[in-house]
């Protein structure tokens, strides 16, 4: 039993570390309704394209909430700078939606989406 533990324990520890360091793969794919970041990105995109600014304002809040739910878990497995960049894109996007600036809003939205996709690079 002791011998088994001596070999099993380090393997289990290393496996746990590998999981923690790559947990973003799981977290980015496993989406519930609340933390479905890509879904809200698409919703906000549709709202902006169709000039539905009131819906866009509601959905940007949901997008931000979903990001705030997933980010504390993601921070152990992704680059801190990438998280910072995504935060900045979302802040700019919020501003562009408030100003109802379609061009700026779409640009910021695409940038946020790009940061999301690049989190595991």
């Amino acid at each position: 039993m002791k011998r088994f533990l001596v070999y099993l324990l380090p393997v289990a520890i290393l496996a746990l570390f590998i999981f923690v360091m790559n947990s973003n793969i799981y977290l980015q794919r496993n989406r519930s309704k609340d933390n479905n970041f890509p879904m809200y990105i698409e919703k906000v995109k549709e709202d902006i394209r169709n000039n539905r600014w009131n819906e866009a304002k509601i959905n940007i809040e949901k997008l931000e909430n979903s990001w705030n739910l997933i980010m504390p878990k993601l921070q152990f497995s992704v680059e801190r700078d990438e998280i910072g960049d995504l935060n900045a894109s979302l802040a700019r996007l919020k501003g562009a939606i408030t100003a109802e600036d379609k061009g700026e809003a779409l640009a910021d939205l695409n940038e946020a989406q790009e940061h999301w996709n690049r989190l595991d690079d």
Binding site: V20, E64, N68, M71, P72, Q75, F76, R80, I83, G84, N87, L90, A91
Partner: peptide
């Protein structure tokens, strides 16, 4: 915006 917990990340990575 939720602030990132730099200390916690460093502890886990440490």
């Amino acid at each position: 915006m939720v602030l990132l917990n730099e200390t916690l990340v460093v502890i886990v990575r440490g």
